[in-house]
Simulated assay, not measured.
Amino acid sequence: MRQDIWCQLYDVIYNTIKEMYRLNEETRRNTRSYDDADTPATNIINSVENESANSDEGDSDIDEEVIDPASDEAISAGKEELANQGYENPTDEQASRFISNKVNFDYADKGERAPAFDYKFVLSTTIITINTSHKFYTLLLEKIYPNTEARTTFELLLASLVQSIRKTDTTQKQENDKLVTLWYNRLNNYISELANPRNTN
């Protein structure tokens, strides 16, 4: 009788454990590692921006506040941003590295109707989020991204635009926002035409 109960429970227990194992494997696959966060583009941008900051050839009249990436404020902001991007339990060192990067790229599913990319400024870093469900990503970037040079070139192009916006006078913020919104709309229209060309015969 005891063996009969065990046999009956075996299917339930075995399937439950098997499902738990599968979910754990999926979670591990979907957990991001910060070691993958520094891209070739990030390293290039850091080199250029740091050299520019140390020379007299500054490309802006805007003086940005220098933030110590090891400060409590920087580490707290870095940890918060990394957690928002799906990194589990970021360390102080990772948070400091994140804030010390001039630009950080985040690839995330923001929905088909959200912009192809978005950006924000957090202390001394710029975070550029590339929407992986936007048509621009699925029709173009996803196809060229296996080529590291193509990916790096695109990231540099995007970073140069956003960093230029960051370096402009804060009184131009409204005009910059209008420009970027117009650009988002044009890009979306062009990509829509690429995906579904009109018959113009």
Rank of each mutant, 00 (worst) to 15 (best):
Thr170Pro: 07
Thr91His: 07
Pro40His: 04
Arg166Gly: 10
Val180Thr: 02
Glu49Leu: 10
Ser71Arg: 07
Arg32Gly: 10
Tyr107Gln: 02
Glu149Pro: 05
Thr181Tyr: 01
Ala150Thr: 06
Pro40Ala: 04
Glu175Tyr: 13
Ala37Asp: 01
Gln3Glu: 14
Thr129Asn: 02
Glu25Leu: 15
Pro146Arg: 08
Val48Glu: 05
Asp118Met: 08
Lys18Arg: 14
Asn104Glu: 09
Glu142Lys: 12
Thr148Leu: 11
Val48Thr: 11
Lys102Asp: 05
Glu149Gly: 08
Ser164Leu: 10
Arg32Ser: 06
Gln174Arg: 12
Asn15His: 15
Ile165Gly: 05
Ile128Asp: 02
Ile191Gly: 01
Val180Tyr: 01
Asn147His: 14
Ala70Asn: 15
Phe121Cys: 06
Leu82Ser: 06
Phe117Val: 01
Arg186Ala: 12
Pro90Asp: 06
Tyr137Ser: 00
Leu182Gly: 09
Ala41Trp: 01
Glu142Asn: 12
Tyr21Leu: 14
Asp4Phe: 13
Thr39Ser: 15
Thr31Tyr: 07
Leu161Trp: 01
Lys167Pro: 08
Asn176Ile: 08
Ala53Asn: 11
Asp11Pro: 09
Asn15Ile: 08
Pro69His: 09
Ala37Leu: 08
Leu139Trp: 02
Gly86Leu: 02
Thr39Arg: 03
Thr171Val: 14
Glu112Gly: 05
